[in-house]
């Protein structure tokens, strides 16, 4: 009854092979894959993610962490947590991964134009923000103040440390880093990242805030901005994460209230998801 035919119309679950051009160790458990799209160019928007496939092992959703102005080089910064990410972490130059995407909603870099841009990252959350930072620097005249605030556990956990230092050298960007704890010899800030908010100048009435990090970090940061700095909730954007199996809204796993994080997010204006953070297990 059933016969084989030539490959039918490709569907949205078919992975496309991307060549690994290089692998860079960022931190003890975090690495970045530098990928080459098969057509030489892969268009995406800052904040979007792909499903990265280790052949025969599995897929994980990973935010793209490269610049949109370099579509021939796709960077995916990955933390080793399970079987798939460990398999991806063993790849070498010349190997291949499968890519599906890009998926998800982007950071609102267009609507943010003409105002201050406040970018707050925690831990590995800096990776999904990096394309937005690149965009802001490459289109600097579009924004008023550009501020990057980054918090992580210890100085050894600072992601993209050299780039943060380079951004810190710039006069057109304000960059501040804080850690939860450090040994003597660290001359930077120690304290939770929300404490940096009170130390930077920005116009709460004309600012767009991009926040990325674990859920507790984002909710605490959003509340600090709303209650402590009078930033309007709709000007705060967070990025959500949930178990994903398809990234196209048909597996049901990533639902958060009425939202499919893969298609309605992962970037959300805070008012769209803020009320859901208080409902345990929603």
């Amino acid at each position: 009854m059933e016969t084989l035919t030539e490959p039918a119309v490709i569907d949205q679950m078919t992975p496309i092979p991307f060549r690994v051009r290089g692998v860079r160790e960022e931190l003890p458990h975090t690495f970045t894959l530098e990928l080459e799209p098969p057509d030489g160019s892969f268009a995406f928007l800052p904040g979007q993610f792909t499903m990265v496939y280790a052949f025969g092992i599995g897929e994980v959703p990973i935010s793209i962490s490269s610049s949109t102005s370099k579509p021939g080089t796709i960077l995916q910064t990955i933390r080793r947590t399970g079987a798939v990410t460990h398999a991806l972490g063993r790849l070498k130059s010349g190997d291949y991964v499968g890519i599906r995407g890009p998926f998800g909603t982007p950071w609102p870099l267009d609507t943010a134009r003409g105002g201050d841009l406040l970018i707050i990252g925690g831990g590995i959350g800096l990776a999904p923000l990096r394309p937005a930072i690149y965009h802001a620097i490459e289109n600097r005249a579009d924004y008023e103040r550009v501020v990057v605030l980054y918090g992580t556990r210890t100085p050894d956990d600072i992601l993209f440390e050299k780039e943060l230092a380079a951004w810190g050298e710039r006069t057109d960007v304000t960059t501040m880093i804080t850690v939860d704890a450090a040994d003597r010899g660290w001359h930077g800030s120690v304290g939770v990242v929300t404490r940096l908010i009170g130390r930077v100048g920005f116009d709460p009435a004309n600012t767009t805030v991009l926040v990325c990090g674990p859920e507790i970090m984002m909710t605490v940061t959003a509340r600090r901005l709303i209650e402590g700095s009078s930033v309007e909730p709709e000007n705060i954007y967070v990025t959500m994460e949930r178990n994903m199996k398809c990234a196209i809204g048909v597996c049901g796993h990533c639902q958060f209230g009425e939202k499919f994080i893969c298609t309605d997010g992962a970037v959300f204006p805070y008012p769209e998801v803020g009320h859901l953070f208080d409902i345990k297990g929603v």
């Binding site: 009854m1 059933e2 016969t3 084989l4 035919t5 030539e6 490959p7 039918a8 490709i10 569907d11 679950m13 078919t14 992975p15 092979p17 991307f18 060549r19 098969p38 052949f55 291949y96 991964v97 499968g98």
Partner: peptide, 21 residues
């Protein structure tokens, strides 16, 4: 099975899929 692929020189290729019932 919604997809199967075979390793090749340029990573992998998508295998032909069975005709639907």
């Amino acid at each position: 099975v919604i997809w199967s692929g075979t390793r090749g020189k340029e990573g992998f290729t998508t295998d032909p899929s069975p005709a639907p019932a």
